[in-house]
Every structure is written in structure tokens, then in C-alpha cells.
Design a protein around this nucleic acid. Structure first.
Length: 598
RNA sequence: UGCCCGAUAGUGUAAUGGUAGCACAACAGAUUCUGACUCUGUUUGUCUAGGUUCGAGUCCUAGUCGGGCAGCCA
């Protein structure tokens, strides 16, 4: 029972430790809670992005390490901004990210189940239980909007306690009064009058903006959020989840703490900007004199990755202005985009966990992200041969009708690697970069008169280059030393360079999308105009030549096109017989770095 | 301006009063049928000033710098 041993996080990480986990561990040790319950509460008004991934991994990670539960909850209290499209994408993205890692901690609720009402110690109580794992009947995420009845009842109770009042001040005046710590003239209304007015607000008697319900706290507080904050506003608008039932909606501060309480959340973890709201969070829950244990809010610094834009407003701008193809464009740091790009969930998790949890606002170098993506892919990607910018080579000593099958390793990182057969013959393609008519110093690929090894095949020697009338290189003629094949008499012969190739007669001609960073600046929005720093080469589409085995690629498979990078099938645009591959990320390239030095 | 929060190599993050570690990046080298991976080595750090203490990155005070909040958004 007092066993606080934390299982090692998977994904190659040691057990993470941070100030929030320390608090949770302490609460477990002192027996403060029977079970740890966290929550991930996105507002369904946009797609989830890499920053949310950190929050998801934190909340689900804690649930997972402490045998707890993490609720997925739509924080949907503003009907004018939210939409079911986002509910669906958010749910899918969360499930993808935690699959195989924290599925067993995902807390959902029975479809349509309303909070249980009861009386505990003479006090009214509401509780919405979660269901984890395989359950009878369909499950769905939690919705703050499912608690509108209960939240309304809490507002009424606050009025009855003399701790809330209906205010008729205009929006401008409300702001003005709060900034100047001046009490509203409606602050002294009687309980009866407040009750009557609030009932009529609910009934739809008043237009938007004419009245609000405000908590009566302390207009002299140095903390603005304690200066009689608004807890309900009038909004005659249909809600994506509750339809036309309501015309008043609770504000975040009122709805969030109550949603946490109703769901039995123990640790309510949010980002730093809510720190100043914490006294209000506590005030509401304490003022209501609720019978069960209260949740507590803890704040951490959100993830800010370099070379990316994660602001919802700016992401929407990129989508709406068609700078990218949609919310799931592989260049976007949305979880949908990252998935489509070919990044494994495990890599995103490793990054999201690896950046750590602190209260220090920092800029995380995208290189850290790129490193875990490469590292994860290196372990699982099937090696394949592909040529992105083909130039033809004729091996003059191999007959035109001869097909030689060579054996290629699927992944040398495996302990017992599997192999496949790759066809090889007289005409092949190599990448244009792998030949230099006038080679720079330390160039050890193919050059006139030089030798190079064709990966998995044999060493070839460049005899002659063929140009067209305009002087463009059209063909390279070489001789192949078949004795240098694996198992051959000269197999051990060393040459400095090894390059990739595909058989011209067997190659698949396929669209490959070469993605690169969307922004060239580390902080694209530092000067207020992130569009200025868009990378014009963030997407380059090529018609590539691929080895035939790639015809059987599936959307889940990850590939390393040898010496080039990691690639995955584009699940959205690939059709049978017409495949599309996305480059997830290039391999590290010491040669490119070397040539840039000059 | 008020209130709140923060500050450890280039970047991020450990050290919970007792040897300042780790990862990424960078650089040099080894290895290599991927200029990848792997391996070895190198450079670089406790914001400042006082104080408490045998001992301070850690505790206290002041300052400096950075950030958040001041929506009928979340």
C-alpha cells in the first residue's frame, strides 16, 4: 500500500523525475489520495500540437507511473469557438500518442452518462466516474459541458451563500472597474434579487453582454482574478455538444475547478499562465464547501520548440491561407501532421518526456526533437534502396538480359537481421550527388576513372561519361567487378566510397515528398512576422526510382532509404499502384556539413 | 504600474546543505559495404552583491535580467 515504487517509463527513458512528480509521490506516500487522477483538458477549438504532446505525456505519464487514471476532457465552455471536428481529431490524436504506452490509463466515461447526484454529510455532491480499459457499451471523452447542470447548481449555491451576484455593468465598465479596484454598483443586490435575475438570465430574457454573474470576493485584492471575476456570461449560441439548451455559459475559471472536482481529479496540471488563477480555483471550491477531497492545481512551463509555430491562432492562419495543405500537413507541428510525416508515437513521447518539467520558460532546440526521431527510426526502419535524383549508369561488361540478384540487409541494427533479394543488372540509376566530374577534395564517391562500391552489389569503375549536345551529363559508362560481390573472390576489396542504386529495368517510379523545416528562423515569430521566415524549400516533390520491394509498403512501416533519410508512406494520398512517400527526416550528413564549411 | 513566477555549459535538464552530472549541439579522432549508427576524446556552466553555515547551485536579504496576468477566451 505504501509501495511508491515507480515503474520505469518505457521508450528507453528512465523514470522521469520532476517537481510535480515529487509532489504526487509525496501525496501517494502520505496516503492523501486513494488513486491518482489527472486530466488532459483541451478546448476543442483547434488541432493538438507538439506542445500538447508534452502535457499529454505528463498527465498520462503520471497516471501510468502511479497506477492512476488520466481523463480526456473537452474543456468546452465557449460555444462560439468550438466544433465537433476538433473533438474528433483531438480524441484520435491522444489515442495515437498513448497507444501501447498508457492506453490502460485512459479514463473515459460511458456514453451519455451524467454525473451521479448524492448527498454526502448533508451536502449535495456530484460525481462523474471514469471507465478504464475494456468496458461494456460505448465510451466517450468527458465534456465540461456535460456538467452544465451541476455547474449551474453550484452558481445558485454561491448566490445563496451571498458569494455571487448578478452584475449589469457593460463589458467596458466591468474591465474599467476591475482595473481600478472599484466595486460594482450591483454588488449589494439581495440574494432573492440575484436568484431571480440569474434564473431569468438562464431563461434567455436578456441579450448577450447585458448581465453577468460574478463571484463576490475582494475588489481590493492585488490579484485581478480575485476582483469579483465573472463566472457566467450570456451567449445566445448553439453549443456543439449541448445544442440549444443553454444561453448562459460558465467561464473557464468556474467550470474548470468544478469539472476537476466532479471527476475526482487529484492533481490538476496546467501551464504557467494559470498560476495567478490558482487562488480563484481554490476559492470557488472552498466556498462551495464540497464534501469530497478537493483537487489541486500545479503549473509548469509549456514547451516552446525552436523553428516551429504552435500558437493556435497562427496555426489556423497557415491552414486558412493555404500556406500548408491542412491541419495534418506533414510540415506542421500538429500531432496529426507529425503522425502523417512518419514520426513514430514513441519518438514524440520520448521528446515530450525528455524535455523535462520545470517552471522555467525555455526554447527547446529542434535538434533534440530531430535526434530522437532519427534514433527511434534507426532502430525500426527497414533499409531500402532509392534514388531521388537519378542519373543512369551502364555497366558495359554485364549483358543486357542478365539479372543478378543480390542480398540486402533489412536492418543492420537488428540482432538477427533479415535480408531480401534486390535485382541488379546492366542499367542502374544512382543519385546525381554521388557523381562528380570535377570532384572536390575528400570526395569519395564516383568520379571519372574512379572506383566506388554499389551497396550490396559490387565495385564499379567509371570509364566514360556521356553528354548531350548542350553539355548535360546523360549517362555514365562503367565496368563492374563482379568478383567483389559478397562471397566473391575479391569481396574484401576496400574502396573509400559506397553508394546506393536501383536497377533501371526494375525500378518503381514514385512520387516522394521531401519535407524540411517549415521555418528557417529559430523563433519564427520573434519579430512579429513569422510568415517572413517560411522556408521556401519546406516541400520539394520529386519523381524517384525505388527498389521493387517498396511496392509492398504499408502505412505503418518505416523505411530508411539508405544514405538519404527516413521515409513513410503517405496514408492520405497513396493509392494502390500509385504510392506517395513522405520524407520524415534526413540522415545526419557530415559530408554536407563539410562542404558548407568552404 | 500592481500582483505572481523564474534564472545551472551554446540549448535543455539533474544535483532536495556535502565531489556541479546527463542529453542535445559543436569540435577532433577511431570504425564503417550507409560520410548513417557506434566508440573515444575535447571545449563551455551555478545572474550580481551581501548574509547564515565547518560547508551554499541549494537557505535568507537586496538588486539585475527574463516571463506571466490585468477577455463576457481557455
Amino acid at each position: 500500500m505504501t509501495d511508491t515504487t515507480i515503474p520505469n517509463a518505457h521508450d528507453g527513458e528512465n523514470r522521469p523525475s520532476d517537481f510535480i512528480r515529487d509532489i504526487v509521490a509525496d501525496d501517494v506516500k502520505t496516503g492523501k489520495h486513494q488513486q491518482i487522477v489527472t486530466r488532459f483538458p483541451p478546448e476543442p477549438n483547434g488541432y493538438l500540437h507538439i506542445g500538447h504532446a508534452k502535457s499529454i505525456c505528463l498527465n498520462f505519464g503520471i497516471a501510468r507511473e502511479f497506477n492512476g487514471v488520466c481523463h480526456l476532457r473537452m474543456d468546452d465552455t465557449n460555444p462560439t469557438k468550438e466544433d465537433v471536428e476538433y473533438v474528433e481529431s483531438i480524441t484520435a490524436d491522444v489515442k495515437w500518442l498513448i497507444a501501447g504506452w498508457a492506453d490502460h490509463c485512459l479514463g473515459l466515461k460511458r456514453h451519455g452518462h451524467a454525473p451521479d447526484a448524492s448527498t454526502v454529510n448533508g451536502k449535495p455532491d456530484y460525481y462523474q466516474p471514469s471507465v478504464v480499459g475494456a468496458a461494456a457499451g460505448p465510451l466517450e471523452p468527458f465534456y465540461a459541458s456535460d456538467y452544465f447542470d451541476q455547474i449551474y447548481a453550484c452558481a445558485v449555491r454561491l448566490i445563496e451563500k451571498g458569494k455571487a451576484y448578478v452584475c449589469d455593468l457593460s463589458p467596458d465598465d466591468t474591465d474599467e472597474y476591475r482595473r481600478n479596484a472599484k466595486e460594482s454598483p450591483f454588488r449589494g443586490r439581495s440574494v432573492a434579487e440575484n436568484l431571480d435575475l440569474f434564473t431569468r438570465m438562464k431563461a434567455g430574457e436578456f441579450p448577450d453582454g447585458t448581465r453577468t454573474l460574478r463571484a463576490k470576493i475582494d475588489m481590493a485584492s492585488p490579484n485581478i482574478w480575485m476582483r469579483d471575476p465573472l463566472i457566467y456570461r450570456i451567449r445566445h449560441a448553439d453549443h456543439h455538444h449541448t445544442g440549444g439548451k443553454w444561453c448562459i455559459y460558465p467561464m473557464y475559471d468556474f467550470a474548470h475547478c468544478l469539472s476537476d472536482y466532479i471527476e475526482g481529479i487529484t492533481h490538476s496540471i496546467c501551464t504557467l499562465e494559470f498560476e495567478v488563477h490558482r487562488p480563484l480555483y481554490d476559492w470557488i471550491l472552498e466556498s462551495l464547501e464540497l464534501p469530497r477531497a478537493l483537487p489541486h492545481q500545479y503549473e509548469f512551463a509549456k514547451l516552446i520548440p525552436s523553428h516551429m509555430i504552435v500558437s493556435k491562432r497562427k496555426l489556423i492562419q497557415l491552414v486558412n491561407e493555404k500556406v500548408v495543405g491542412g491541419w495534418d500537413d506533414p510540415r506542421l507541428p500538429t500531432i496529426s501532421g507529425i503522425r502523417r510525416r512518419g514520426v513514430p508515437a514513441a519518438a514524440l513521447r520520448r521528446f515530450a518526456i525528455g524535455v523535462g518539467v520545470t517552471k522555467f520558460i525555455s526554447l527547446t532546440d529542434i535538434a533534440v526533437y530531430e535526434h530522437v526521431v532519427r534514433d527511434e527510426l534507426n532502430a525500426i526502419a527497414l533499409r531500402r534502396l532509392a534514388v531521388l535524383d537519378p542519373i543512369k549508369i551502364v555497366l558495359t561488361n554485364i549483358p543486357a538480359d542478365q539479372v543478378i540478384e543480390v542480398e540486402a540487409t533489412d536492418n543492420p541494427q537488428d540482432e538477427n537481421p533479415t535480408t531480401r533479394k534486390v535485382p541488379f543488372g546492366r542499367e542502374i540509376y544512382i543519385d546525381r550527388d554521388d557523381f562528380a566530374e570535377v570532384p572536390p577534395p575528400k570526395y569519395f564517391r564516383l568520379k571519372p576513372g574512379g572506383e566506388v562500391r554499389l551497396k550490396y552489389a559490387c565495385i564499379i569503375k567509371c570509364d566514360e561519361i556521356v553528354k548531350d549536345a548542350a553539355g548535360n551529363l546523360v549517362e555514365i559508362r562503367c565496368t563492374a567487378d563482379l568478383d567483389t560481390r559478397a562471397g566473391g573472390a575479391n569481396a574484401a576489396k576496400k574502396v573509400k566510397g559506397t553508394i546506393h542504386w536501383v536497377s533501371a529495368t526494375h525500378a518503381l517510379s514514385t512520387e516522394v515528398r521531401l519535407y524540411d523545416r517549415l521555418f528557417t528562423a529559430a523563433e519564427p515569430d520573434a519579430d512579429g512576422d513569422f510568415t517572413k521566415h517560411l522556408n521556401p524549400n519546406s516541400l520539394v516533390v520529386v519523381q524517384a526510382k525505388l527498389e521493387p520491394a517498396l511496392a509492398q509498403a504499408t502505412p505503418e512501416q518505416r523505411f530508411q532509404f539508405e544514405r538519404l533519410g527516413y521515409f513513410a508512406l503517405d496514408a492520405a494520398d497513396s493509392k494502390p499502384g500509385k504510392l506517395v512517400f513522405n520524407r520524415t527526416i534526413t540522415l545526419k550528413d557530415a559530408w554536407a556539413k563539410e562542404t558548407q564549411k568552404k
